[in-house]
């Protein structure tokens, strides 16, 4: 945000002025966000819920919805493989989210609770891996999966997606576990709880905001992924919804209306998650140093 100096007091600008500047900045930012996010989303919804004939009547896009129609969704769900794509997306997203979160919790716990040689190196490598764009990993992974005969499998795509999300989730959990006082665990040990029991009873409940953030992040990566799915999956029945929807544009029988309807469907799960789990998301990312 716009702030002059460290805080309100002690700067040359009066606090009232700072307040005004802050408020103006917030409003401006909100407007910018609205222009770049809300308007496209609105266009998407508007096209999706009108029948193609009324949406594009008169040669221009009809942005004021006057007749609701679920024609686009009907076409999408009955005449295309959208349900199949959705199913594929759900399978790989769920498995990758689970895998990435489990890896992150295990790695975060290990990195903060045990001393071993090469620990710093490993931690840096994790962060370094996060700098790669997915496409850098995609080609080598393709070669590997091809050699192993794993192309067109949920298993391969799950691994590929985890490779993209895990560096960040590991880093997140590593940071998060640093804020969980080890005295909590020690106190459980002294009271007779084994290390494993302590992890279930104490560590995991306390780390919950952390791993929920990690899970949300890996969910977002997997659900929205295009690159990996495009590279690993080459059969129509194995496509995820993102790849499938992008292919609609190449087909004559499927128009903008259906494509927007597909986009709307894609957007619903992330939207729900952001809506219901935002508190956890903020808690987890605050600790990770992101605000």
């Amino acid at each position: 945000m716009f702030e002059f100096g460290e805080g309100a007091a002690g700067s040359y600008v009066s606090q009232a002025t700072q307040q005004r500047v802050k408020r103006t900045a917030v409003v401006l930012t909100a407007l910018l966000v609205a222009v770049f996010v809300t308007i496209p989303v609105y266009v998407m919804i508007a096209i999706a819920v009108q029948s193609p004939s009324s949406a594009f009547a008169g040669g221009s896009v009809q942005l004021f919805v006057d007749s609701l129609s679920f024609e686009n969704f009907r076409v999408l769900l009955t005449e295309t493989s959208t349900p199949r794509y959705f199913f594929n997306s759900i399978v790989v997203t769920a498995s990758s989210t689970f895998l990435s979160t489990v890896i992150a919790v295990a790695a975060g716990y290990g990195l903060t609770r045990f001393d071993f040689t090469g620990k710093t190196l490993m931690a840096r490598a994790v962060l370094f891996a996060y700098m790669f764009s997915p496409i850098v990993l995609a080609i080598p992974l393709y070669v590997i999966f091809y050699t192993l005969g794993l192309l067109n499998s949920y298993f391969a795509l799950t691994l590929a997606l985890t490779a993209i999300s895990a560096p960040f989730t590991i880093w997140l959990m590593w940071q998060y576990f640093q804020t969980v006082p080890i005295a909590l665990e020690e106190s459980a040990w002294v009271r007779g709880a084994s290390r494993t029991r302590t992890i279930w009873d104490v560590v995991l409940p306390v780390a919950r905001p952390g791993y929920i953030s990690a899970a949300i992040f890996s969910f977002a990566v997997s659900w929205n992924d295009f690159t990996m799915a495009r590279v690993v999956m080459s059969q129509d029945e194995m496509y995820t919804i993102t790849v499938g929807a992008s292919l609609f544009l190449d087909r004559v029988s499927i128009g903008w209306g259906e494509t927007m309807a597909a986009s709307l469907l894609i957007a619903i799960p992330p939207f729900c998650i952001a809506l219901f789990l935002q508190n956890y998301l903020l808690q987890g990312f605050n600790v990770g140093g992101l605000e």
Binding site: E186, S187, W189, V190, G192, S194, R208
Partner: peptide, 29 residues
């Protein structure tokens, strides 16, 4: 190991489990 010394310890940081009620905290051992 600390688990089988029948010792109890109070930590400087107090170390109460934030996700358990007072009753559960006291009764955890």
């Amino acid at each position: 190991p600390p688990q089988d010394r029948n010792a109890a310890m109070v930590f400087q940081s107090i170390a109460l489990y934030p996700h358990m009620s007072v009753r559960e905290n006291i009764g955890y051992g």
